[in-house]
Amino acid sequence: DVEPGKFYKGVVTRIEKYGASINLNEQVRGLLRPRDMISLRLENLNVGDEIIVQAIDVRPEKREIDFKYIP
Score class of each variant (00 low, 15 high):
Val2Cys: 07
Val2Asp: 02
Val2Thr: 03
Glu3Gly: 04
Glu3Trp: 09
Glu3Leu: 13
Glu3Arg: 13
Pro4Asn: 10
Gly5Gln: 04
Gly5His: 05
Gly5Lys: 04
Lys6Ser: 07
Lys6Asn: 07
Lys6Gln: 08
Lys6Arg: 13
Phe7Ser: 06
Tyr8Phe: 04
Val11Asp: 00
Val12Gly: 00
Val12Thr: 01
Thr13Val: 11
Thr13Asp: 05
Thr13Glu: 07
Arg14Lys: 13
Arg14Ile: 06
Arg14Glu: 06
Ile15Val: 10
Ile15Trp: 03
Glu16Gly: 15
Glu16Ile: 06
Glu16Lys: 10
Glu16Phe: 15
Lys17Phe: 12
Lys17Val: 13
Gly19Thr: 06
Gly19Asp: 04
Ala20Glu: 01
Ala20Ile: 13
Ala20Pro: 02
Ala20Ser: 02
Ser21Trp: 15
Ser21Phe: 15
Ile22Lys: 01
Asn23Ile: 12
Asn23Phe: 13
Leu24Tyr: 02
Asn25Ser: 14
Glu26Ser: 14
Gln27Cys: 13
Val28Ser: 05
Val28Ile: 14
Arg29Cys: 13
Gly30Trp: 05
Leu31Ser: 03
Leu32Ala: 01
Arg35Phe: 07
Arg35Trp: 07
Arg35Gln: 12
Arg35Ser: 11
Asp36Pro: 04
Asp36Trp: 09
Met37Thr: 04
Met37Cys: 09
Met37Asp: 05
Met37Tyr: 03
Ile38Phe: 09
Ile38Thr: 11
Ser39Trp: 14
Ser39Ala: 12
Arg41Asp: 08
Arg41Trp: 09
Arg41Lys: 14
Arg41His: 10
Leu42Glu: 02
Glu43Leu: 07
Asn44Gly: 08
Asn44Arg: 06
Asn44His: 14
Leu45Ala: 01
Val47Asn: 02
Val47Ala: 02
Val47Arg: 03
Gly48Cys: 05
Gly48Thr: 01
Asp49Thr: 05
Asp49Ser: 04
Glu50Lys: 10
Glu50Trp: 15
Glu50Arg: 11
Glu50Tyr: 14
Ile51Cys: 01
Val53Asn: 00
Gln54Glu: 05
Gln54Cys: 12
Ile56Trp: 08
Ile56Ala: 06
Asp57Ala: 15
Asp57Met: 14
Val58Arg: 04
Arg59Gln: 06
Arg59Ala: 05
Pro60Lys: 11
Pro60Asp: 08
Glu61Met: 08
Glu61Lys: 09
Lys62Gln: 12
Lys62Ile: 09
Lys62Asn: 10
Arg63Asp: 12
Arg63Ser: 12
Arg63Leu: 12
Arg63Lys: 14
Glu64Cys: 11
Glu64Ala: 07
Ile65Gly: 03
Phe67Met: 03
Tyr69Pro: 03
Tyr69Ile: 04
Ile70Cys: 10
Ile70Lys: 05
Ile70Gln: 08
Pro71Val: 07
Pro71Ala: 11
